[in-house]
């Protein structure tokens, strides 16, 4: 290694500036989080966003199909059409639903999201509209809190970089006086950066505000999942497919039965003078 590397001068400073520039360029706090963690979590939330959009698209088309069906049914009834056409209309609505789902665009999705958040839930699709509105609200809340947490993470990154800079200056001073070796290579710099990152994060992680924010995000994720389940279960019921709620009921009943059997067995054992568990 050259002398300049040993005293940790130009290339190290260049690296620090490079990291700062990346954080600045990312604009979105946390976008350049520590090596593997950042890109991975980014990818995961992209997947969730994509999944959410697909659900929205499918939901939009589904509701539109039902609205059209409801309107046509209402018009047909008014004109005195035979109720036998009900099945055919329903089939058309269903086909329209999925045809629409395939062609729905992002712009339309946003328009739909905006519309549904403002309009009061009415008519045959009232319950579905309500469910989708709650889902959208939960999603918006989650995204907002996720953004806040990313901001905190971004600050951890920036502060870690500043701490690293200070550590290098200290090390350089010690090296000049012969009290410590210089930074020999990239890995040593990397390890020092990890150490600084952990120190900064430990302070943040123990703070009440971080604990609160992280929990709020977790709670928002739970609400989002609950809303997704509600929408999904409604669909499953329409196909007479079992839902998780039904399984829960069965499992609960089984557990209660087991408890009753255990109690009876225990009483029986006691009557026989055997030891109780």
């Amino acid at each position: 290694m050259s002398e300049s590397k040993n005293d940790g001068s130009d290339w190290i400073q260049a690296w620090i500036e490079q990291q700062r520039e990346q954080l600045r360029r990312a604009g979105m706090p946390g976008a350049d989080a520590a090596s593997t963690a950042g890109p991975k979590s980014e990818g995961v939330s992209d997947q969730f966003r994509d999944l959410g959009m697909r659900w929205l698209e499918a939901g939009q088309s589904y509701l539109q199909g039902w609205q059209q069906f409801a309107q046509r049914s209402a018009a047909g009834s008014a004109a005195g059409e035979a109720p036998l056409k009900f099945g055919e209309e329903m089939l058309n609505a269903w086909q329209g639903t999925w045809a629409g789902a395939a062609s729905a665009g992002e712009g339309a999705t946003r328009q739909f999201a905006d519309l549904i958040s403002r309009m009061p839930a009415l008519g045959m699709a009232r319950e579905q509209t309500e469910a989708w509105r709650e889902l959208l609200a939960a999603q918006a809340e989650y995204q907002h809190l996720e953004q806040e947490l990313r901001t905190v993470w971004s600050k951890v990154q920036t502060d870690a970089l500043s701490m690293l800079e200070a550590a290098i200056r200290e090390r350089r001073a010690k090296h000049s006086s012969g009290a410590a070796p210089g930074i020999e290579d990239y890995r040593e710099l990397y390890n020092l950066w990890v150490e600084c990152g952990e120190k900064v994060f430990a302070q943040v992680a123990h703070s009440e505000s971080y604990c609160k924010l992280q929990a709020q995000l977790g709670n928002a994720a739970i609400r989002l999942k609950t809303r997704q389940q509600a929408v999904l279960e409604r669909t499953l019921k329409q196909f007479d497919l079992p839902t998780r709620s039904e399984l829960n009921t069965v499992h609960k009943q089984m557990r209660e039965l087991r408890e009753r059997i255990a109690t009876l067995e225990s009483e029986l054992a006691a009557a026989r003078g055997e030891e109780r568990s």
Binding site: A37, R187, V194, F201
Partner: peptide, 11 residues
């Protein structure tokens, strides 16, 4: 310990 456990141990 995100820096150590997500990154450093693999490096």
């Amino acid at each position: 310990m995100p820096f150590r456990l997500n990154s450093q141990k693999y490096v």
